[in-house]
Amino acid sequence: MPAAVAFLAVAISRPGSAAPPQRIVSIIPAVTEMIFAMGEGARVAGVSSFDAFPPEVSRLPRVGALLDPDVERMLSLKPDLVVLYATQSELKQRLDRASIPYYSYEHRALADITSTVRAVGARIGSPGRAEQLAAGIERAIAAVRTSVAQRPRPRTLLVFEREGSSLRNIYATGGYGFLHDMVEAACGDDVFSDIKRQSVQATTELILSRRPDVIVELRYGDNVKVADIPREMQAWNALASIPAVKNHRVHVLVGDEYVVPGPRVADAIKRLANAIHPEAR
């Protein structure tokens, strides 16, 4: 009899069992935010080195990130679910060996944010709260769409990377992925819609030839110095023939919510729409 009880206990704690996880380690900031936004933050036991939101994560242990997951530290937290990125196959193998279940996440389109919320909710045993959160995000995005839907769609360049005070190493969103979808949701016409990639390295020639009406530049991470931004933005003035520069429609948006495809995305789209359509504010 004791042997049978022991077997049963093992069977229950096996990966993929129905019991909702209680110690979740998430190295995907977007998913961490989702879990907290569902009100299940108390179950998060560890986060990545890049997690910064909500503020509660600052108290949690850090276990590396996409390129440098610290497996030892991860295991020491005794997780019963690890949220990782789809391409982390080595980490997956090591977790398999330790019989720790994982949830595999991947950045994709805007619509995938709410489907991820629902999938994560189902996985951690909170489908109801997840549905509530996802529906709320979808309603908020729809509201932004409606508020600007009747406006003309200016040709928009969304830059998420640029070297200091120069026009070098500019990266912009291409015609695929959640940043592109955010531009379209904010009623902007992405100038690189035809380039079906998540990111485009935009040379000055390419930007000049696409003639954007609006340029929105995103700033995020720990090293943003707000005081330096006005000086750094002057670099765009060299491209005076671009309508966005000529008409003073070059904007900066600061915050991690623009690049973390999590629950704050609706808010991010709203502010993006305000930048693209200041008259609609």
């Binding site: 890049f50 990377e161 026009l167 070098r168 500019i170 000055t204 995020y220 991470g221 060299a238």
Partner: peptide, 20 residues
């Protein structure tokens, strides 16, 4: 940090798009 890593990787490949 992540953004800088990305920038430096690209920088190490070499580019002549000096933008001015």
């Amino acid at each position: 940090d992540f953004a800088d890593t990305f920038r430096t990787v690209r920088w190490l490949m070499g580019t002549l798009d000096v933008g001015g």
